[in-house]
Design a binder for these strands. Sequence first.
DNA 1: TAATCAACTTGACACCGTGTCAATTGACAG
DNA 2: CTGTCAATTGACACGGTGTCAAGTTGATTA
Lengths: 210, 210
Amino acid sequence: MSSDSLPTPTRILQATLTLLEAPGAKLPTMSDIARASGVSRQAVYLHYPSRTDLLVAATRYQDTQNDVDAALAASRNARSGAERLDAFVTAWGNYIPKIYGVARAILAVTDTDPEAAAAWNTRMQDMREGCRAAIRALEDDGTLPPGTDPEQATDLLWTILSVRTWENLTQTCGWSQTCYLDTVRGLALAALAQDVGALTDVLACPDPPA
Amino acid sequence: MSSDSLPTPTRILQATLTLLEAPGAKLPTMSDIARASGVSRQAVYLHYPSRTDLLVAATRYQDTQNDVDAALAASRNARSGAERLDAFVTAWGNYIPKIYGVARAILAVTDTDPEAAAAWNTRMQDMREGCRAAIRALEDDGTLPPGTDPEQATDLLWTILSVRTWENLTQTCGWSQTCYLDTVRGLALAALAQDVGALTDVLACPDPPA
DNA sequence: TAATCAACTTGACACCGTGTCAATTGACAG
DNA sequence: CTGTCAATTGACACGGTGTCAAGTTGATTA
């Protein structure tokens, strides 16, 4: 087994991700994680001094595994601003499901642990850069609505693309991923690229509203 | 003091709301609440068997105090669908800041306590009815984008008007309430009432992006 | 005046999860 | 053989929730 030969910190991270990504799982305790890692509870603390540290390390590890930057960089090749926005929404929207488990765990402790909140914020700041770039491309095209402050447009796009929005539509409302993508893409184009028809035939997915 | 003459359960609820509504406050413990109520910790459990029960009771109490229904009912008088949507967004958007403290506390335990999640969901279901009605008005006007399923349009509006969205824009991004309102109104009109100019000059609030 | 009853208090305790500490084991390297 | 490092074991403190039993207080009723 390759997992036996991996260094302990990595084994712990992988076990953490496995627990976090299990659909509909309860938020794991340190004991759960230790057990799943095949390691004592104290060994976990030996490598990650607190639960928050571990969760943050888990996101970082996950990012290196998934190569976010590569996925998001694809949108840089788009010519028009609208195309770029489209590509960015698609790339990020498809990335969210991969990180949702970890995001959920971090967001859950965010209310009580300011350190976790800070870590998550800087994590999301990177994504915000992508929003910023997409908005700037629209700005160059002159397709932004008249009188729009690019900073606020970035905030809006960033909010539309937030994990919470994804969670609401797919988890609470039961939308499929493709339906989510179509809608959010249409919403972004309609609101920020003045694309009138962007939402035509979009809100019509054959989904059972769970 | 009028608060001395109030029945204990009510005093507890009021103290809870006061703690919850204090800006930037930590989530209060049962001891905090008892102390603020001028009552022993066990007296709290005497009336509310669990923290979740207390929080849920606090929202209900708050709703009766604020008379949500009256505020939201105003939107029923609008003639056109777009006007109705506008009025509803304004009414609900102005209600969110009042309930945010409690909402925050309930949402925080939602991840671990399914009972709290259920209570909050039914709480939000009422609001969803308002979304549904606004969408239906647009449907009657024929202003919904072609090929739109009203149920999904409702989901989308409901998500746009979610507490999380408000939280993201006003708390995290530092937007003013009026800026939030203008933007969300514009977003809803642009996306669901095909109002092309709804976002013109809207994303231009003189706010310091905190 | 005395008994009663409900609301409330006091203080203890169990349970769980986080985080800490100290003593111990086992393997590997010089 | 000895040191060192990683990991284990088992104990403990702390904070928060929730429970329990015994006592207090004050108003009502006999």
